[in-house]
Nucleic acid binder design. Structure first.
Length: 157
DNA sequence: GCCAACGTTGGC
DNA sequence: GCCAACGTTGGC
């Protein structure tokens, strides 16, 4: 199973939104960046995903969710009312993809960006590189495990 | 609110 | 195909 990380502003959709309805499914839509889309398209059902809270007071990895439906055409690209509408996209040639995600658990306290940056064991995480704006990225197995060593939530189990 | 970094657009 | 202008991201 591959591992991933997605960024989101918690005021838009954070781990709390997943936790509120643990049985529910949240479509991860509105991604409008080609590199991020290409990664979305590679996600498989069962893959685990870090939820990273950006542009907010407490920046960092705040929880884990799971892919419950692999990539499909993002419906918002066809909706003229949506801010994610794309006139250049068509039903037979959709440009943008979405996946469905469901709650796994909350990481509390979250793993802050500061702590992530202080890890020297990370081999390849675009997130901690300066100026990186990629909102969907792969996390290799080693980095995933390294990050989880900072997770106090797991230690309590 | 600022601003550096980055991706996209569009004129040429 | 280049690249300047522009809009957006995201940490601070």
């Amino acid at each position: 199973m591959a591992k991933w990380l997605v960024k989101s502003e918690p005021s838009e959709c954070g781990i709390a939104d997943f936790a509120r309805d643990p049985e529910g499914v949240i479509p991860w839509d509105g991604v409008r960046n080609y590199q991020a889309r290409n990664f979305l398209a590679q996600m498989q059902e069962g893959d685990e995903v870090f939820i990273y809270h950006s542009s907010c007071k407490h920046i960092g990895i705040a929880g884990i969710v799971r892919v419950v439906k692999a990539a499909y055409a993002d419906p918002l690209q066809f909706d003229p009312e949506s801010r994610y509408f794309d006139a250049k996209s068509s039903a037979d040639k959709p440009r943008w993809q979405a996946v469905d995600l469901a709650y796994v658990r909350t990481i509390n306290p979250l793993i802050s960006l500061d702590r992530l940056k202080s890890l020297d064991g990370l081999t390849d995480l675009p997130l901690v590189r300066k100026g990186n704006r990629l909102s969907v990225m792969p996390v290799n197995e080693d980095d995933w495990n390294t990050i989880l060593t900072l997770d106090a939530t797991a230690k309590r189990h």
